[in-house]
Computed example of a mutant assay.
Amino acid sequence: MKERLNYIDWLKGIAIITVVMGHVTAFDFLSLTDSSKSFVNRFIVSLQMPLFIFLSGLVVNYKFESVIASSKKLLYKAWILLVPVILLGIPYALWRGFTIYEFIINPTKYGYWYLITLFELYVVYYVVFSYNFLHDTKYEDFMKGCIIWIL
């Protein structure tokens, strides 16, 4: 078993606290008004999810073994990240009176956007890493090509 890095666990804890603070500061409980446009809320919101994405990328560990092994790892990530969206997110949307179509086109997916985005980033990572390994290309050259293609 791999040794846990305490500073990453601490950063995850800080990220969780900022998510809670972002939700709390989005609503002013004293005047019962929306305060999501306040400086404090905008600062917290601009920090919290990029920190989670950064930490997820920091701890990703991938060693190319074969296409089949990589596919199994990706399926495992899909199971961990997408099953909660299907089992919790869609029923929640239906319970709130929305259709599945409205759930799919909603940009925030009623709070489940992060899991979907994280899975998409894993897919991109696995594809890029596997391509580099199979074609023996330099990572920097491949990433420059991707950036040029995106632009």
Score class of each variant (00 low, 15 high):
56 S>M: 09
46 S>E: 06
21 M>F: 06
28 D>K: 11
31 S>D: 01
29 F>I: 10
23 H>Q: 07
57 G>H: 09
36 S>R: 11
21 M>L: 09
47 L>W: 03
34 D>K: 15
34 D>P: 09
23 H>N: 11
66 S>H: 04
42 R>W: 03
42 R>A: 14
20 V>N: 10
32 L>A: 12
31 S>K: 12
53 I>V: 15
66 S>N: 07
36 S>L: 13
39 F>Y: 13
18 T>C: 07
58 L>M: 08
48 Q>D: 07
61 N>Y: 12
39 F>C: 11
52 F>H: 01
59 V>W: 01
20 V>G: 06
20 V>M: 10
41 N>D: 05
53 I>H: 07
50 P>M: 04
34 D>W: 15
65 E>Q: 11
21 M>H: 08
49 M>A: 10
51 L>A: 02
55 L>Q: 01
45 V>A: 03
30 L>E: 05
55 L>G: 00
64 F>A: 06
19 V>P: 01
39 F>R: 15
53 I>Y: 04
33 T>Y: 03
19 V>C: 03
65 E>W: 08
23 H>F: 07
42 R>P: 05
27 F>G: 09
62 Y>H: 09
45 V>D: 01
44 I>V: 14
51 L>M: 02
43 F>M: 12
41 N>T: 13
58 L>Q: 03
19 V>A: 07
60 V>C: 06
32 L>Q: 14
32 L>Y: 10
19 V>Y: 06
27 F>K: 12
41 N>Q: 11
23 H>M: 03
59 V>P: 05
18 T>D: 04
30 L>K: 12
60 V>S: 00
37 K>L: 10
49 M>E: 04
62 Y>Q: 06
41 N>S: 15
26 A>T: 07
27 F>S: 09
56 S>V: 14
34 D>G: 09
25 T>K: 00
23 H>I: 13
20 V>R: 14
66 S>R: 01
